[in-house]
Nucleic acid binder design. Structure first.
Length: 642
DNA sequence: ACAGATGGAGAG
DNA sequence: ACTCTCCAT
């Protein structure tokens, strides 16, 4: 349910920028012959020509609509070009569109706060930029108003005049405008500039709405398309809203909008005005009631978030009709593919944006061939996200089994899965200072790089367990510098140890480092390092954090340790060119953390999520707890930035 | 059952 | 914290 936000007192300048039939434009850039042609982007061609997900404006003239089938489109528009979405791992792969969207965001985020609202839409808060322009070069003094800006559509301004651009120019420059409208004029000019820049640098056109809040900006960004922008002067708001069909309002396109129509007889936003706030709260609760009352008056306090990246990553596929998955093996096949893609995407998010996802969720839709209660939904399931393709695949499969268990209940009927998806959410920036762990290990001013770590003479004897050897590349390898001393204080056990060892074994090439087993294990296991090194000798035998509390999983965990030796091959598959390494919590020995200096400990604890409440009460059944994927890890992943 | 894929948000 | 439902494109 929508909720009203406190509105800022100061007038704002907000823009909503929407790419015109974006996927089509991306394909047209790739193949310029498609420009100016009726074109649609379609996914999966095999059934009735595939489903349309973007339609060019030339094709729209023929009545081609999104979510038509390719065959239908051909019927109404025989000359249409149907371009297929790229396919990877037997599923649609939208990555080309995602990165094209990023190109646009990069440009649009240069003039103020920018919120990526979707793959092809952003909100901008241009208040500051507009104010600045008003001070330094107010439109009324501008000799040459920016050409594109004069093509704006100004709500409330007669548009059927012969010299439209002149009247727009006059409006943008009028000296007697109130402060708010002057800011909007500046906003319109800035947006026009941005749109031209987007076109120049990406070849993509877009449309935009400029208003005092997000709601109005969004409402009008699509009013004049393609490649146009629309301004909403505050004086035009009321007239514009009164006649607006209620369903056109964002958030009212669904059931709430229908309820407004069917239950209250509200068909336009104007109709809403006759209801008091109390009355609306009575019908729809205090939150939604207040929100409705305000939006009817064009009031929306929603802020533009400063966020250029998505909050989650998901990938899924539907298995309609006869394609439904009917056994565990086929589910596993598809889940593995989906997880592979998801893993790649969170890995590149980590590498490129230094962000970590914490939660893995599995969604599915299922049918029971039983009879009556086939309306029952397949429950979604989440668990801590562990990096590495194989881990994600394993956890996702466990989530599926858990969900299926709940879905079937006690019944023992046939089932079929019509849709599967996995998603990674709760994504956080890696805290600054993260690299201090590696700095610490490497020592100050060290030029040690993974390649310098000498792992060629690692002990063959697994019983050496917690000892690994690292070759310093110069004497001061472990000597804390002045700043490092400040950072870590005097109780730097490891540094001291290193230092002592260094002094003792000054003649020796290898320095023994105690207590850093897990971290060094990680470093030495990285594919960046050596491939010939014996992995077996590196496997530490420290117990997993959950093995004591969940005896029934101890064995499983032990086995997993050995299976997991491949994890870095997948988690860091492109780590040769990457600047980030990941390892999972089970790869770090808690005892190691205690040996680290407080500063480092604090850093690590900053990444630790409080452990979940003991699940033994809520999940009493042995069966269901068996199906639970790893839940007891309090820390899923630790990044090391190089 | 948008025989799609992806994303965001609020409520319980 | 997890799950469900709704909404948008």
């Amino acid at each position: 349910m929508p909720v009203a936000r406190p509105e800022p007192q100061e007038p704002r300048v907000i823009a909503h920028v929407d790419m015109d039939c974006f996927y089509v434009q991306v394909e047209q850039r790739r193949n310029p012959e498609l420009r100016g042609q009726p074109t649609a982007v379609v996914q999966y061609n095999d059934w009735k020509g595939g489903g349309l997900i973007a339609v060019s404006y030339e094709a729209r003239k023929f009545g081609v609509k999104r979510s038509m089938r390719g065959d239908e489109a051909k019927m109404v528009c025989p000359s249409i070009n149907l371009v297929q979405v790229p396919v990877a791992r037997d599923k649609a792969d939208l990555n080309v569109y995602r990165s094209a969207g990023s190109e646009v965001v990069t440009i649009l985020s240069t003039k103020g706060k920018c919120e990526r609202a979707s793959i092809d839409e952003v909100y901008l808060d241009l208040t500051d930029a507009a104010k600045e322009m008003l001070l330094e070069s107010p439109p009324e003094l501008l000799e040459l108003i920016f050409e594109e800006a004069t093509k704006s559509n100004i709500l409330g301004l007669p548009s059927d005049v012969s010299n439209r651009e002149d009247s727009v120019r006059a409006w943008l420059c009028r000296a007697d405008a109130d402060y708010q409208d002057k800011l909007l004029s500046c906003g319109a000019i800035i947006v026009a500039q941005l749109r031209v820049k987007v076109l120049e640098e990406t070849q993509f056109t877009c449309s935009a709405g400029i208003a005092h809040n997000k709601m109005l900006a969004k409402l009008v960004s699509g009013m004049h398309k393609p490649a146009q922008q629309t301004v909403v002067p505050s004086s035009a708001v009321q007239d514009f809203l009164v006649s607006l069909p209620i369903k056109k309002m964002k958030q009212l396109g669904g059931k709430l909008g229908s309820s407004l129509q069917d239950d209250l007889g509200v068909n336009t936003v104007g109709d809403l005005l006759s209801f008091t706030e109390d009355k609306l709260q009575e019908y729809y609760g205090v939150n939604t009631g207040t929100w409705l009352w305000k939006i009817a008056r064009g009031i929306s306090g929603e802020e533009v978030e400063d966020r250029l990246l998505p909050k989650s990553h998901g990938c899924g596929k539907t298995f309609p009709g006869p394609k439904a998955l009917k056994n565990n093996a086929s589910v596993k096949t598809w889940l593995d593919r989906l997880c592979e893609e998801l893993s790649e995407r969170i890995q590149s998010d980590l590498n490129q944006n230094k962000r970590i996802a914490q939660t893995l969720t599995l969604y599915a839709r299922a049918c029971k061939k039983n009879k009556s209660d086939s309306i029952k939904k397949f429950p979604s399931k989440s668990c801590p996200l562990r990096y590495g393709t194989v881990k994600i695949q394993e956890d996702a499969m466990k989530l599926f089994e858990s969900g299926l268990h709940d879905f079937l209940g006690s019944q023992n009927t046939k089932w079929s899965i019509t849709s599967l998806s996995v998603s990674a959410s709760k994504i956080f920036d890696i805290p600054i200072g993260t690299s201090s762990i590696l700095r610490y290990i490497k020592g100050p001013n060290s030029t040690v790089s993974p390649a310098n770590l000498d792992c060629s003479s690692l002990p063959e004897d697994p019983s050496l367990g917690n000892k690994l050897y690292i070759a310093p590349n110069h004497e001061e390898h472990c000597e804390p510098s002045l700043s490092e001393k400040e950072d870590y204080g005097n109780n730097s056990n490891l540094a001291k140890q290193c230092q002592i060892k260094e002094e003792k074994k000054v003649s020796k090439k290898l320095t023994e480092v105690k207590g850093t087993c897990s971290i060094l294990k990680f470093l030495s296991q990285s594919p960046v390092l050596s491939e010939k090194r014996k992995i077996d000798s590196l496997i530490c035998s420290h117990p997993g954090p959950e093995s004591s509390s969940e005896p029934n999983k101890a064995e499983e965990h032990k086995a997993a340790q050995y299976v997991d030796r491949n994890k870095f091959n997948t988690a860091g598959s492109n780590s040769a060119s990457s600047s980030t390494w990941m390892f999972n919590v089970e790869d770090i020995d808690p005892a190691v953390v205690e040996e680290l200096p407080p500063e480092i400990q604090r850093e690590i604890h900053g990444w630790i999520r409080p452990p979940k409440q003991s699940s033994s009460k809520t999940r009493g059944s042995t069966i269901s707890s068996y199906f639970q994927p790893a839940k007891s890890y309090s820390l899923q992943a630790i990044p090391i930035l190089l």
